[in-house]
């Protein structure tokens, strides 16, 4: 289905969408020291995607990220579980954290911990879940039925 849209509306949505994505990335990275973290970041990104869905209908979301929600979920889970598994392989406790000094070009020195990898996993899973909900409850339910059930 195609909605009639105004260019201004689309532009606004895109703007908000971009802004929300940047915000979500900030929340993800800042989380360890400021309010935020993977959850909140992921939720904000998911909110942005949901907004896109509400504004643009189903077709947009389907191809929005060019990536399957499955993939996001699996990568996210793998990242999070990976941070638990890797230390064990090296004889440490699961989920042991390591901290690294990282030189960031613009922002200067920052301390990055392996917790960030974990948080990134969380982030991806939250986004993936939202995509899945939108795909399932939003898109799929608009498709025709084929199993003989009566559409009500």
């Amino acid at each position: 289905m195609r909605y009639r849209r105004s260019v201004i509306f689309d532009a606004t949505v895109t703007l908000v969408f971009d802004g929300a994505l940047v915000l979500s990335a900030y929340l993800l990275f800042a989380g360890h020291n400021q309010p935020g973290g993977g959850f909140v970041g992921g939720l904000v990104a998911a909110g942005a995607i949901a907004l896109h869905y509400v504004a643009g209908g189903g077709d947009q979301v389907r191809s929005l990220l060019g990536v399957q929600p499955w993939t996001l979920l699996s990568i996210g889970l793998a990242l999070a579980v990976g941070t638990a598994v890797v230390p064990v392989l090296f004889g440490a406790n699961p989920l042991d954290q390591e901290a690294y000094q990282v030189e960031l070009l613009v922002l200067g020195k920052a301390k990055a911990t392996t917790a960030l990898v974990f948080d990134a996993g969380v982030y991806l899973v939250v986004v993936g879940l939202m995509l899945m909900i939108l795909e399932g409850l939003g898109l799929a339910s608009d498709e025709p039925l084929d199993d003989g059930e009566v559409e009500r």
Partner: peptide, 27 residues
């Protein structure tokens, strides 16, 4: 609480999907 909130969100989304399916098969 944060953990609980997120879990509840996932569960409620699932329940809503169940409600949707229920509507599909029983009206």
């Amino acid at each position: 609480v944060l953990t609980a909130i997120v879990i509840t969100f996932g569960v409620i989304a699932f329940l809503l999907a169940l409600a949707y399916r229920s509507w599909r098969v029983t009206g």
